[in-house]
Design a protein around this nucleic acid. Structure first.
Length: 481
RNA sequence: GGCCCCAUCGUCUAACGGUUAGGACAUCGGGUUUUCAAUCCGGUAAUCAGAGUUCGAUUCUCUGUGGGGUCACCA
């Protein structure tokens, strides 16, 4: 019988979450949801130096915005609570004791300066630095023996002891078979001199305790996987499945998208008015493709089609263009009521006219564009009389007299409509009836549109007229004629 | 630099060893329109290079090139 799938997202609270981190969380979440498993949120705060206050809340807020709900976590607890590593120090100590007893961990006798010197020497010799080559004799005469582990009092780092230098071969669900030579194995630090465990140790202990079945994380961890495997082996525990995700590259270059390269806080996308479902759809497809030609997927569909073996190995460049397009596609999936509600919310209070919604809708790809339209003054024509030089009313070579005549004609026709019938279809029918009799429709439609909008580029005159209402429309036309 | 990994249009990607190498974004052109937007139709555009295996390589192997990752008391 298959074990119940358990995945986790384990960020360190060092600031905001960027899209790379979010995608890793998304894949772990999709995997858990697809298999009716558990998705755990765990905070890896073992580096107190880099910790940024408020990060934990920020991370949770980001995940919540995207709807990546967790079944166990720092705020809601669970069978393995607490879910914050700094509150689990006793546990790591317990596991450390096991390794010490087995002779597979020992106290590091060197100062940081001494180690720095070893490192410099190795560099000068153009050789990779390996701590184990400087392993103190008292710890073990050779690589083979676990004898005489030096006593660890917690004031110095505790190091893992590699006992077998070998080629490591393992399987990754995404990358297939991976391997690394013995140089990937070293006596790394399990517990730092400040009492906190390192990532290398803590995450393994927690994954074991929390019964994590699939470790989903970025490819920056591939090269340290042999170290992780040696710890699992030392502990006598079968390692979980490894699901390694490819990097997300910046839109301009080939650099991996990271905070230093100006990667954005995911919550910025919320502020810009992107739909969480569009964001998830985009992120999922950056480095994953189920095959086939469908690209717009709802959250539920995404869960259904998610497949670990279809995750890409090469890095993918971020594209705002594609995200915008996808967001627009997701807006199309919304009901008109939802669209209207959102557009009105993003409009300045004094502009919240439901009649503007259709005009705005076809000009935006995300809600933030609504605000931009308002800010740029593109909607001002609906709220105040436009002013413009009169010659702007001229259509091509048509004479001013003819234009004026046509405007009079338009006024007369529109005046024939009742207030109640002043609707786009009626307005259009009435105006088109006249326009079609002219040499060119533009002789009538251009001046009407310009008289109403005062802009070179604007929505069509019929919709503007309806929104303005009969009185305002006729007033503006009269002013022009 | 050592080690590990990756390589299809500009970008995201599809293609049991046999396809006119497909789709999407972007771009360009056209239709519809009074302008813009939206929408519809169409075009340009890719298998990194060189060997090898094979009747036949995008696909398998090797080398080269390019790119990425990693070498911490960071995760």
């Amino acid at each position: 019988m298959e074990k119940k799938v358990v995945t986790r997202f384990a960020p360190s609270p060092t600031g905001f979450m960027h899209v790379g981190g979010v995608r890793t969380a998304l894949y772990a979440w999709l995997l858990a949801r697809k298999n009716n498993g558990q998705f755990i949120l765990r905070i890896e705060d073992t580096d107190k130096e880099r910790e940024v206050a408020g990060s934990i809340e920020h991370i949770q807020k980001s995940l919540k915005w995207l709807g990546l709900n967790w079944d166990q976590g720092p705020d809601i607890g669970g069978p393995c609570a607490p879910y914050i590593q700094s509150e689990r120090l006793e546990l790591y100590k317990k596991y450390a004791e096991i390794l010490i007893k087995k002779g597979l961990a020992y106290a590091d006798p060197y100062t940081e300066e001494e180690i720095g010197k070893f490192r410099q020497e190795a560099e000068a010799d153009k050789k990779p630095f390996l701590y184990r080559e400087h392993r103190p004799a008292s710890t073990s005469a050779s690589l083979g023996g676990p004898e005489n582990p030096s006593v660890w009092d917690g004031s110095t780092p505790l190091r893992f002891k590699v006992v077998e230098l070998k080629q490591t071969i393992w399987n990754d669900i995404v990358w297939g078979e991976l391997s690394a030579g013995p140089e990937a194995l070293d006596d790394f630090i399990l517990i730092k001199s400040d009492g906190y465990p390192t990532y290398n140790f803590a995450h393994i202990v927690d994954d074991i305790e929390m019964k994590v079945t699939h470790v989903v994380r970025g490819q920056e961890f591939i090269s340290s996987t042999p170290k992780f495997l040696s710890v699992y082996e030392a502990l006598g525990v079968t390692p979980p499945y490894f699901v390694t995700t490819p990097p997300i590259m910046g839109a301009d270059g080939n650099k991996k998208l990271g905070k230093r390269d100006g990667a954005k806080d995911v919550l910025d996308y919320e502020k810009e008015g992107y739909l969480p479902d569009a964001m998830i759809n985009y992120l999922a497809f950056l480095g994953f493709n189920p095959g086939g030609e469908k690209e717009v997927y709802t959250r539920e569909e995404l869960i259904n089609i998610f497949d670990l073996t279809k995750i890409q190995r090469s890095g993918a460049q971020w594209s705002d263009d594609k995200l915008n397009w996808l967001n627009k596609e997701h807006i199309k999936l919304l009901s008109y009521d939802e669209v209207e509600k959102n557009i009105l919310e993003w409009l300045p209070k004094e502009m919240r006219n439901p009649k503007l919604v259709p005009i705005i809708l076809e000009r935006i790809s995300k809600w933030g564009d609504v605000k931009d339209m308002a800010t740029r003054g593109e909607l001002d024509l609906f709220f105040k009389q436009p002013s413009y030089p009169k010659e702007k009313l001229i259509f091509k070579n048509t004479s001013p007299e003819k234009i004026s005549e046509n405007l009079q004609l338009a006024i007369k026709t529109l005046d024939g409509l009742t207030e109640k019938d002043f609707k786009i279809e009626n307005i259009k029918n009435a105006l088109m009836l006249i326009a079609d009799k002219l040499d060119s429709r533009g002789e009538l439609l251009h001046p009407v549109r310009f008289a109403l909008s005062g802009l070179d580029k604007s929505p069509d005159p019929f919709i503007i007229a309806e929104i303005l209402g009969k009185n305002e429309t006729i007033s503006r036309l009269q002013k022009a004629a």
